[in-house]
């Protein structure tokens, strides 16, 4: 079976500090894989390696059968990998609609994209806010906008970095529903880093346990929970 994203034996270090030792990961098309592990396990480094911010020192990284090694940040983004950040990184002087236009910009002219972008805004519950700028949005709305932006850039794989951090309980439930709806409609895959296991349980098809830069086990949630590695991590 061929995977959308496949990572083998990925290693990266900063000077003497080993951030990733050996990470193996495979993500099937239209599925959601959650990466779980303690702080410092290497989750952020892994995301940064995938999105091209860091150049991994060892291992292979391939997306749709194409190696991501040596590709620049923008090349990787154009292949169809979009990401969000723990703190939503938005442009304070651009309106909500302009955020989507900017995300769509590398894939064609602005003309004629308005219906699609409006549709995305509607699906993300942002229609009423299209003229607003990020400073006047709530934190939850800012998070929705970062996801809407990923959709506007035609992403096939979206990296969600702690999407539920800082959300209230009500917002979290709404967020889970939003992602589930969007997944059936736009058919993208998700790589999720999340500390809150309720979110993982609700969204992930599979879970990867990462500790000290090593991937320990990748399986479905029930299997991971039964594994000795998980017991050790929890204990």
């Amino acid at each position: 079976m061929s995977y959308l994203l496949q990572i083998d034996d990925l290693g990266h270090q900063f000077g003497e500090i080993v951030a990733l030792e050996a990470v193996d990961l495979s993500l099937a098309t239209q599925s959601c894989l959650a990466i779980v592990g303690p702080n410092g396990a290497g989750k952020s480094t892994l995301f940064n390696c995938i999105s091209g911010l860091y150049r991994p020192l060892r291992g292979t990284l391939s997306f749709r059968g194409q190696s991501l090694l040596g590709k620049s940040i923008e090349q990787i983004a154009r292949l169809g990998i979009a990401r969000t950040f723990q703190q939503p990184k938005l442009f304070a002087s651009l309106s909500v609609l302009q955020h989507l236009q900017l995300a769509q910009a590398p894939y064609g002219p602005l003309r004629g994209t308005l219906p699609l972008l409006r549709q995305i805004l509607a699906d993300c519950g942002l229609s009423a806010l299209q003229g607003q700028k990020p400073p006047s949005l709530s934190f939850g709305q800012q998070k929705s906008l970062s996801i809407a932006r990923c959709l506007a850039s035609h992403a096939q794989l979206i990296l969600l970095d702690e999407p539920a951090a800082g959300l209230s309980e009500a917002e979290k439930t709404a967020f889970i529903h939003l992602i589930q709806d969007l997944r059936t409609k736009y058919q993208f895959s998700i790589l999720l880093v999340e500390h809150q296991l309720t979110i993982v349980e609700a969204l992930a098809d599979e879970v990867l346990l990462l500790d000290q830069g090593k991937s320990l086990i990748q399986a479905n949630w029930e299997a991971v929970k039964r594994s000795t590695e998980w017991q050790k991590y929890k204990g």
Binding site: S51, G52, S72, I73, E74, Q75, A77, R78, A82, R83, K89, F91, L102, A103, A105, P106, Y107, R149, S153
Partner: peptide, 8 residues
């Protein structure tokens, strides 16, 4: 961030 949106 522009780079992360696929823009050179």
């Amino acid at each position: 961030l522009i780079a992360h949106l696929g823009i050179k």
